[in-house]
Design a protein around this nucleic acid. Structure first.
Lengths: 242, 242
DNA sequence: CGGTACATTGAGGCAAGTCAAGTTGAGTGG
DNA sequence: CCACTCAACTTGACTTGCCTCAATGTACCG
């Protein structure tokens, strides 16, 4: 039983641009089905291609790179509404892996239809490019945070982004947002050791700024959290949903 | 006196995909002129839009973000063939600034024509997306380097990327490539202090791996430099030229 | 109840930051 | 031609934020 794009639960979220009936109609044809992924499943693999592209409909995951020296860098976290496989679609090879953290529901598309999308629906092609640009914007921000800020600010920034992004996709229930990741994932994302990440989280908790435990994040003091993060975030405007 | 796209000197470089006559013909119309920028000129400004988009025809520059706390993060360096203003074209606002380091020659395009490009030349739209994906790929790599590697490896990686990228755009004369930036720029790019960057460069020089002085980079031992960098670089395949 | 996975805490060491002084070379003006 | 300034690069001494190691706590599960 798959979701009809017309009734896609994500369409109503404030984080996404409205979609014309015409576009919905096209997306119905473009969507090939759904895929259920168990926690821990490798959805895409660094260095390989993929016959399918996805949009995350439900659940959360991690994008990461394995380095030759054994380290791991988490590039970003996959939340509902995120498109997966742009690089595979356009370059033919992924430069990072994507893994499901929770159980995930994915809308699937054929990579072979991707080029048609640009030809037949230039507006959708433009949207894809916009998504790529938003990703570039996010990565630039991450680079600045990891390159220039101290541990406390890095962690605060990450939590702040989780809070706002999850709000945008309707994943909030009275102040709490679901955050199913391990501390190790966050550590690998902000470029800190697990131990230091843990201690930094503890301090933010003590200071009554934000608490993350048992898979849920609670921001007690949004103002101070944003202040700690010390970056003007880039994209609060609605983005395209594919 | 402007360069006709047909005779664009960059077309012959190994770093770029071949362009069909049809595409050249379209690009001739798309290109509105050329712009000469003096060293230090702000070509695009973080937080603002731009009526024009550019391709760097000659010269080098820096993309950077200013942070609220006064720090600066260099996102990447602009070399010949690089497209400038994707974010302005697609999102309407730049999230970083671009500044000319040397004198620069830029091909100019109208932002208002950008959408037409997707509609009338879907193949070019696809190329734009590919460029965006390559940028995403590069930023992911940078994130991994800055997040996970030590100073020596970070600097080695940066020098290695300079060497290979400049080779791809025909900017090499017997082993030397032009590198007109300040050590401070490199420091801001790899997330290290100026002092530590300087000392790291000195050590790479002593070890006969690479020398950077007077605006020129010489790689004495490519093998060891690449080994120090400790990342599998992502994109050695030709990329689209806009 | 032992085993595994994740979170937590303390102690010690090192990589990288900060501070400060000195060198070099280009540009300027008396 | 020399004295001065200024910007970039260099080097040494000291400080510190973060990493590493190692142990303990806690929940869950076969």
């Amino acid at each position: 039983m798959t979701v009809d794009c017309q009734n896609c639960p994500l369409r109503d979220c404030e984080g996404f641009q409205p979609m014309t009936d015409d576009t919905v109609h096209f997306m119905r044809r473009f969507k090939k089905g759904e895929l259920q992924a168990e926690p821990g499943t490798q959805i895409m693999t660094q260095g390989s291609s993929s016959t399918h592209l996805f949009t995350c409909l439900e659940g959360q995951g991690v994008r990461y790179k394995d380095l030759p020296n054994g380290e791991r860098q988490v590039i970003s976290f996959v939340l509902p509404g995120d498109f997966i496989g742009l690089q595979a679609g356009v370059m033919g090879e992924m430069t990072h892996s994507v893994e499901a953290t929770t159980e995930m529901t994915l809308c699937t598309f054929n990579r072979s239809d991707f080029w048609n999308l640009f030809k037949e629906q230039p507006a959708r092609g433009f949207d894809i490019t916009r998504i790529a640009a938003l990703e570039e914007c996010f990565l630039g921000e991450a680079l600045a945070v990891i390159g220039q800020l101290k541990a406390r600010a890095r962690v605060a920034w990450a939590l702040w982004r989780f809070q706002t992004r999850l709000e945008e996709v309707c994943e909030v229930t009275d102040g709490h947002v679901p955050l199913p990741f391990k501390q190790q994932d966050l550590a690998d994302a902000v470029g800190l050791s697990l131990v230091h990440t843990n201690k930094t989280l503890a301090r933010l908790r003590e200071d009554q700024i934000a608490t993350w435990s048992d898979g849920w994040l609670t921001v007690h003091d949004p103002e101070r959290l944003a202040a700690e993060a010390a970056v003007a975030d880039c994209e609060t405007t609605p983005r395209p949903l594919i």
